[in-house]
């Protein structure tokens, strides 16, 4: 464990908590893409099946349980409890265009052709594009609530910190996982446009609104 990975995990945890609290307190999921949240729940489910097979550390197990619990709670709020506030007309990204290619790629490019490893690879590839429905929805509505932009900032920051963690681990431990690194780079690049808007607008107190 190094400071970059720990900060990355805490940033990820912050994002997940911010979103869940925002929806719970405002009793509304307006502006939130339910499709992205379903994809994240799928990412955690397929990646953390090893909760049932191996124990790595209390920290590792605790965080995985929190991630899975919060992501399913968020999906539950969006599609069940607060369904009336879900903005389905703007959440129209075709997720099958993500899941099918990612599923195929996981079968073709992986470290080991075993069920757990293929599911882990699928989850790594899926996570790198899971935010697309959310970004697409913001481009369609042309704006995002400020709290939603903070959620996206911490979510994007987490994988960027993981990239530094992988540089650190390669240099100090010789650890190197090409699949996670390439997917992490793609994932972080997808946030660049948003990061620019976040820094130039939200941090200056303006509302994030895209040129309609």
């Amino acid at each position: 464990m190094n400071i970059f990975r720990l900060t990355g995990d805490l940033s990820h945890l912050a994002a997940i908590i911010i979103l869940l609290l925002k929806i719970w307190k405002s009793r509304s999921c307006a502006g939130i893409s339910g499709k992205s949240q379903v994809l994240f729940a799928l990412v955690f489910t397929t990646r953390y099946l090893d909760l049932l097979t191996s124990f790595i550390s209390l920290y590792n197990t605790t965080m995985k349980v929190i991630y899975i619990g919060c992501s399913y709670a968020t999906v539950y709020l969006i599609y069940m409890k607060l369904k009336a506030t879900y903005d389905g007309n703007h959440d129209t990204f075709r997720v099958e265009f993500l899941i099918v290619p990612v599923g195929g790629l996981a079968f073709l490019v992986n470290h080991d052709f075993s069920p757990l490893e293929i599911l882990w690879t699928f989850s790594i590839y899926l996570e790198s594009v899971a935010i697309l429905p959310q970004l697409f929805m913001i481009s369609k509505t042309g704006e995002a609530e400020t709290i939603t932009t903070h959620y996206l900032f911490f979510l994007g920051l987490y994988r960027a910190l993981y990239l530094i963690n992988w540089i650190w681990r390669f240099y100090f431990e010789g650890f190197f996982d090409m699949i996670a690194i390439v997917a992490g780079v793609v994932q972080t690049i997808l946030y660049c446009d948003f990061f620019y808007l976040y820094v130039t607008k939200v941090l200056k107190g303006k509302k994030l609104s895209l040129p309609a």
């Binding site: 995990d9 010789g174 190197f176």
Partner: peptide
């Protein structure tokens, strides 16, 4: 050499 330790990352 590049080793693939067990999946210890989240």
């Amino acid at each position: 050499e590049t080793i693939k330790t067990d999946k210890d990352e989240l």
